[in-house]
Amino acid sequence: MSLSITLTINGAERTVALDDPRVTLLDLLRERLDLTGTKKGCDRGQCGACTVLIDGRRVNACLALAVSHDGADILTIEGLARGGELHPVQAAFIAHDGFQCGFCTLGQIMSAVGLIAEGQAGDDPERVREGMSGNLCRCGAYAGITEAVLDAQRVLNEAGREQAA
């Protein structure tokens, strides 16, 4: 059977011919589309390093078959900045020392973008920590990550209010 799929990746439509249905979305991004910003940590849904947004929702790309997501809209870390301007979540991770080695960082950032969009955590640090619990950081930068998420959320909410006004 034909396994040609079309995805919108970071705003650009891409048609990919899959020779094998076993290809995960993570491997498709990294190995076939050279989008290596999305990291392979555990590859088993335990660490969150492969977090991307599918149709606006954060998921583990390692546990998604690419072929199942034909037609989906995918946002990866490469699609977050606008030209030379960092996304507010990216900027906040730098401002708050939200990382050390950086391997988990793209997953943390994509998860934070998803968390803020979900709008469940509010400004409660405990809810932010719980909402980020699917992303492990072996360097232990959690304190900075929580501050960065709260700060980025304030910036994004203010920007949203200005747009609405």
Binding site: G45, G48, R57, R58, V59, N60, A64, M132, G134
Partner: peptide, 9 residues
């Protein structure tokens, strides 16, 4: 249960 990413899927 699980994580936000897993619950989304």
């Amino acid at each position: 249960g699980a994580s936000p990413q897993l619950r989304n899927a």
